[in-house]
């Protein structure tokens, strides 16, 4: 059974993919759909949703168009999710690969280093990092990346450990290929599948983490992310629920979609596990 077929058999995964594609399309079309800055007050504050055609999702405390914010926010939130996951991968994959392949003392040292980062409460560390570097896109992405890489390193190490003893790797060693070349051409490509799965899940948690940071006032003030919108509207849940509800729903749906798609990917890439479903 090929990959696509297996993926499509999982209805949840397909649903996730569809939601995800919709979010991406909205994000890409943001400047066309809402050419005006989402920060500009354009109507009366606190307009309820579904009452005025111009503001389908209502307006916020300053009279800004929530629909515009939501669509522009998709870009920011997705970007933060993807970029900080990339940062985490950039740290975690090489560390895990080296540790797993080298073994011995190097493995021990690197794993102690990883453990060290897992020992510090991660959310607290993220808060401190953003506070030190000041809340702006770069520091937020960095902080999320820095607290999210250890599981990736562990995953990659585990995979590499088991791959190292395979015949084709041994063969490469025998014919005298250099270690980096072996790692990059023989070992890592075979770990791609679990990394992709984990990465897709991590994008979701990165979006959640950014929204928590925003809630504590540690978001980038020049970027309208969903986390920012939820945080900004949170004190108005009672009389203007829509201000934080729609961005909250957007976060929820996106994280959900990423998880569904991620799990679908996992099942599709890992047929042995999928069999357990029978």
């Amino acid at each position: 059974m090929n990959f696509l077929k297996r993926f499509c058999r999982n209805r949840g995964a397909v649903l996730g993919l569809v939601i995800l594609l919709a979010v991406v399309v909205f994000a890409l079309l943001a400047p066309t759909l809402f050419p005006q800055s989402p920060w500009r007050p354009v109507g009366r504050p606190f307009l309820a949703p579904f009452t005025i055609e111009r503001f389908p999702l209502g307006t916020d405390t300053l009279g800004r168009n929530l629909a515009a914010g939501l669509v522009h926010g998709a870009r920011v939130s997705l970007m933060i999710g993807v970029v900080s996951t990339l940062v985490a991968l950039l740290i975690g994959v090489p560390l895990g690969a080296i540790a797993g392949y080298a073994g011995g003392f190097v493995d021990d040292a690197l794993m102690r280093f990883t453990e060290f980062f897992q020992t510090i409460p991660s959310f607290a560390l993220a808060i401190v990092l953003v506070a030190i570097l000041q809340p702006q896109l770069g520091s937020i992405v960095l902080a999320i990346g820095v607290v999210s890489w250890p599981p990736i390193a562990r995953l990659v190490r585990g995979e590499v450990l088991s791959l190292r003893t395979r015949e084709y790797v041994q063969a490469a060693v025998t014919i005298g290929q250099s270690t980096p070349r072996i790692i990059f051409s023989q070992v890592l490509p075979n770990t791609i599948a679990p990394i992709i799965v984990m990465g897709s899940l991590m994008i979701g948690s990165a979006i959640l983490l950014e929204s928590s940071l925003s809630f504590l006032g540690l978001g980038d003030p020049n970027l309208m992310s969903w986390g920012y919108m939820v945080g900004a509207g949170r004190t108005r849940l009672l009389d203007a629920w829509w201000i934080s509800f729609f961005p909250g729903l957007a976060i929820f749906l996106t994280v959900l979609a990423l998880n569904l798609a991620g799990e679908g990917l996992n099942d599709a890439l890992n047929p042995r596990l999928a069999r357990g479903r029978e």
């Binding site: 979701g204 959640l208 929204s211 928590s212 809630f215 986390g227 939820v230 945080g231 949170r234 849940l237 009672l238 934080s244 909250g248 976060i251 929820f252 749906l253 994280v255 959900l256 998880n259 569904l260």
Partner: peptide, 18 residues
């Protein structure tokens, strides 16, 4: 489980208070 996981914690906190 996915719903529990994907909803921002502080949002749940505020909603539950209300």
């Amino acid at each position: 489980a996915l719903i529990f996981y994907a909803t921002p914690l502080f949002w749940v906190a505020l909603m539950s208070q209300i």
